[in-house]
Design a protein around this nucleic acid. Sequence first.
RNA 1: GCCGCCGUAGCUCAGUUGGCAGAGCAGCGGACUUUUAAUCCGAGGGUCGCAGGUUCGAAUCCUGCCGGCGGCACCA
Length: 486
Amino acid sequence: MAEPADGADDLLATRRRKLEALRASGVDPFPHEFDGVEPIEAVRAAHSGLAAGDETSVGHRVAGRLAARRGQGKMAFLDLVDRSGRLQLQARVDELGVDGMDRLLGLDLGDLIGVDGVAFMSRRGELSLRVQGFVLLAKSLRPPPEKHHGLTDVETRFRRRELDLMANQEARELFILRARVISAVRGFLDAEGFIEVETPVLQPLYGGAAARPFTTHHNALDREFYLRIATELYLKRLIVGGLERVYELGKDFRNEGVDSTHNPEFTMLEWYEAYADYLDVAERCERLVSTVASSIGYSGEFDLSPPWRRETLPEAIRTRTGIDIMEMHDRDSLAGAMSARGLSVPKDEGWPKLVDELVSKHVEPTLLEPTFLMDYPVELSPFAKRHRSVPGLVERFEAYVGGMEIANAFTELNDPDEQRRRFEEQRALAGAGDVEAQPYDEAFVEALEQGMPPTGGIGIGIDRLVMVLTGRRSIREVVLFPAMRD
RNA sequence: GCCGCCGUAGCUCAGUUGGCAGAGCAGCGGACUUUUAAUCCGAGGGUCGCAGGUUCGAAUCCUGCCGGCGGCACCA
């Protein structure tokens, strides 16, 4: 409430005052449109051959946010930023008049403006527009982040992503690249005969992954629903229905911990393909990732081109720890072998969890180059088909890059009676307190009883794929608005 | 959940042994017709995350809480 004058008022009040002054002088600070805008990138492309000092008579209309200002008085330079880049504007009093000059220089950094100007190459060799006319497109009532250091505070960058995007070009580029990844994924699958489908996010019963769900309530039906943890079971029902090749790209929700590779809601791609097995799926997976990578110009630390390394899970555990899980099929002998080698043994956990421990502690961190880890114990995989030649295993792989799981796939179990038995086993685990055990899904089993062709299916974590393709180490860097505490 | 580090102006950051709260950018007033983080002059701007405690005196030391990051645990 302090009175204006000089610096006694705060930054917001100053901007509000300017807003009111504009209105008082008949300027609409929030006009409705600005037609015919050219992306800054296109303006640059049109003048790539100019040399320092060259003038043109080519006019351009651009629009964006005012990002910097140099100079005052009779001539000044300003920087305008749009999605595609940054362009210097030159403001001259002999072009704009004293009044126009004052109005242009009276704008605040952060204001959105539209500009008509003529291209020229400055003495220092920077492409610029000599401003002939401009219009305020939206007044900014809050100060933008600092113009040199940008916005670096991690918490602010995530909570107020709009500030990150306006201040940091890398942030803009990253999310544009993410969009291109998703577009390339669709293009790849569409071209290979898959159709994109949408299945329920709100589900009466959840399933398809080992995870705890979020619950919500439907008022009119007066019943609980779950937010899906996977799309798997519905998609397989579409395979039963004869759609043959389907994929879904969308959010899954898992009510579990948050860390650098887990966000409670995340983007998952799943596809299912009739008459295929997990080897076919692996081949398509490595081809998809490699194709998407080259379509976005990936040049990171990994060689993503096919074929990826393949290693069986029992073999991977044996070479890392010397333990042969195929020879130790009861909990006690495996636990004994682990403690004999000085490895920590999770208490009160059964054989499957011990295997899981060995894989996540001793195998996964070593899988840096793209690798398919193949053939998992049946106990860990309630929806995967038994291995055609190795008892106790299923035809399943997880794909790893940089020590991080990016995909999980199997030859789908299509024997309804065995699926029923697997659900019974899950029910027993749930009874023993496993909060992630699969709930029994009778509708799914009945669908399998209609007859499902041999099918291969996969889930690929899109956020993690984007992490790999952009070299980011935290999932929060590739999700626009990651989950944060209040 | 446990451990460690961090939280100071709109933004980026200093702040010594516990002794008046600092700089740059941004903003405000002014000068400047080819700047590139423009420069120069002037005057402003603070819930030092929050709440307690110790002390003559706390941004600084102690406790608790909130938030962030990292690690562990959990988690396909």
